[in-house]
Design a protein around this nucleic acid. Sequence first.
DNA 1: CAATCGCTTGGTAGCGCTGTCAATATCGGT
DNA 2: ACCGATATTGACAGCGCTACCAAGCGATTG
Lengths: 342, 342
Amino acid sequence: MARKHITPGKIRLTEVAKLAGVSPITASRFFRNPDALSAGKRARVESAAKELGYVPNLAARALASQRTEVIGVLIPSLTNNVFADVLRGIYDALDGSRYSIQLANTRYSILQEERLLRLFLAQKPAGLIVTGINQTADSRRIMETVDCPIVQIMEVGPSPIDMMIGFSHFDAAKAAIAHLLAQGNRRIGFLGARMDPRVQRRLDGYRAAMTEAALFDPQLIVTTAIPTSVTLGGTLFADLLAKTPDIDAVFCVNDDLALGALFECKRRHVAVPEQMAIVGFNDLEFMASSEPTLSSVRTNRYEMGRNAAMMVIETLEGRRPTDPVVDLGFSVMERQSSARRS
Amino acid sequence: MARKHITPGKIRLTEVAKLAGVSPITASRFFRNPDALSAGKRARVESAAKELGYVPNLAARALASQRTEVIGVLIPSLTNNVFADVLRGIYDALDGSRYSIQLANTRYSILQEERLLRLFLAQKPAGLIVTGINQTADSRRIMETVDCPIVQIMEVGPSPIDMMIGFSHFDAAKAAIAHLLAQGNRRIGFLGARMDPRVQRRLDGYRAAMTEAALFDPQLIVTTAIPTSVTLGGTLFADLLAKTPDIDAVFCVNDDLALGALFECKRRHVAVPEQMAIVGFNDLEFMASSEPTLSSVRTNRYEMGRNAAMMVIETLEGRRPTDPVVDLGFSVMERQSSARRS
DNA sequence: CAATCGCTTGGTAGCGCTGTCAATATCGGT
DNA sequence: ACCGATATTGACAGCGCTACCAAGCGATTG
C-alpha cells in the first residue's frame, strides 16, 4: 500500500455518482456535456453535486483528457494602459465560461515570447492569444503545428498563423497626419518611444503621409527606445523643438507622450493649438477631458480583447468565425488640440 | 485496453530516467529537490532532460502531489493603474521561480471575491494574495482554515488572516491634509470616487485631520460610487465648487481625479496653486511632469506586489518572514500644486 | 565485529478523472 | 413481431507523476 488512504470528507466524482445513483462516468458527462444525459439522471446528478458542494479536480481532468481549459495570453507589458484594456476585454469574455487565463509578460522581447510559448504549449492550452505579428521564425513554426486556436491581436497583417484581430497602425498614423495636414499644418513632428513593431509601423504611416505631401524631413522625427511616460513626452518634445524650432504640429505615438508634450507647451507658454497642434494615439480616457482637449486616434482595445477571447471560445466549441481576420479599425478624434487656427 | 497506446515521441519522466540510467523516482526528485541526489546522478539526469527537451506535466504533478504551484491573486480591478503596478511587482517576483499566477478580478465585490476564493481553493493553490482587509465573514473563515500562505495587500490593519503588506490609508490621507493645512489652507475640499473600503479610510483620515483643526464641514465633501476617471475629477470638482465656492484647496482620493480637477481649474481660469491647491493620491508617474506639477501621496505599489509574492514564496520554502505584517508607509510629495501662496 | 546511523535509491500503488468501446434501452417503420 | 437506428449508460484501464516505505550501502562507534 502506497499512501494514506482516502481522506474521509473528500468529495470526488465517485461520491456524487453514488449519491445520484449513477456510474461515475455518467456523472462526469453531466459536467462536460449535460445534453447527453436523460433528463432524470441529469437532475439527480445536479442536485447531488450541489448537495455535496462538489468541485471538479482540474488537475485530474487535465491529466485524463490530455488537455486543459486554460487560454494562454502573451502580452508585452503589464504597465501599459493599452494592454490593461485588452486584458479587461479578455477577462470579461471568459467570465462565467469554463475557461481560465494564464497570463505571461514578454517584456517586448520576442525571444522571451518564444520561451514562454514553449512553456505554455507543454501544458496543452485550450487556446492562445499572442500580441502582434512579429514572432520569431521558431515561434511561428511551433504555433503553426500546434492544434489549438490561436489569435494574434493588436494589429492585422498578411498570413495569420490562425486568426487575427486588430487594426492597421500604418493606416491609423497616416490618417492622423492627414488630419493635421488638412488643418493646415506643414511642419509636423513625430515623437516616438519604445519603438516596438507597432510603433514602427506608425512611423512608417507618418513617413508615407508626409512624403506624399512632399513635406517629409527626417529632422522632424525624434524617437527613443526608452519606455513611454508623460515625463518622456515632455523631454522628447523639448528635443524636437531644439532640433526643429519651426514645427507647427506634433504627432505622438501614444497619449502619454501627447500629454507630456502638452504640459511642456504650457511650461514654455506655447499656445495649443494656436502655435502648436498635438495629436496622440489610443484615445485614453483623459484625452477628452484635458484642457485643451487632446486629439487622438481611437482604437478599440476592449473590443479587441473581448473578441479575441470569443474567437478562441467559438473555435473550441466548433463554431469557428467565418472570417479569421478581423479589422477593428480606428477613428481620428478631432479635438481642440488640433483645431484649425482661426 | 482503454485507449490508444503510448504516443511514440512523447517525452515523459520515464524516458528521461531511462536515458539517465536511473529510476523514474530519482529523476522526479531531481526536479523537485536536486540536493537529495548524488552529484553523479544529478548530472546524468540533468543532461538527459536537456537532451530530450523534457518539460514536466504539471497536471500529473498536481494530481499526484495533491498541490499545485499556482499562486492565486484576487484584485478588484484590472483597469486601475494602481493594480497594474502591484501586478507587475508580483509577476516580477515570480519570474524565474517555479510558481505561476492565477489572476481573478473581483470587480470590487466581496461576494464575487468569496465565489472566486472557493473556486481557487478547490484547486489547492500554493499560496494566495488578496486585496484589502474587508472580506466576508465566510471568506475569512475559509481562508483561516486553509493550509497555504496568504498575504493581504494594499493596506495594513489589525488581525491579519496570515500575512499582510500595505500602508495606512487613514494616516496617508491625514498626512496629506496636514500638509495642506501647513501651507495655510483652511477650506479644504474632499473629492472621492468609487468609495471602496480603502477610499473610505482616506475619507476617515481627512475627517480626522479636519476635525482636529476645527475646520471640518460636511459641505466640503463630494463623493460618488462611480468608478474614477479624469473626466469625473473635473465633474466632481465642478460640483464641489458649486456647493462651496470658497474652498482654497482640494484633496482628491486618487491622481486621476486630481488631474481632472487641475484641468477644470484651467478651464475656469482658476490659478493653481495661487487660488486653488490640489493634492492627489498614489503619485502616478504623470503627477511629477504636469504643469504645474501635482502634489500627491506616494505609495509603494510595485514593492507591495513584489514583497507580497516574495513573502508567499519564502513561506513555502520554509523561510517564513519574521514579521507577518509589513507597513510600507507612504510619503507626501509636495509639488507646485500645493505650494504656499507668496 | 555487531550495532547503529545517515544518506541515497528504488518499488509499489495510487491521485481523480475521462477516452474508448461495448452493452443496453428505446423507438419508428414495415 | 422483427429489424436496424439512435439515445443512454457503464466497465475498464490508464493519463504522468509522486507519497510512502523499505532496502542498500558505507561510515562510525563501543
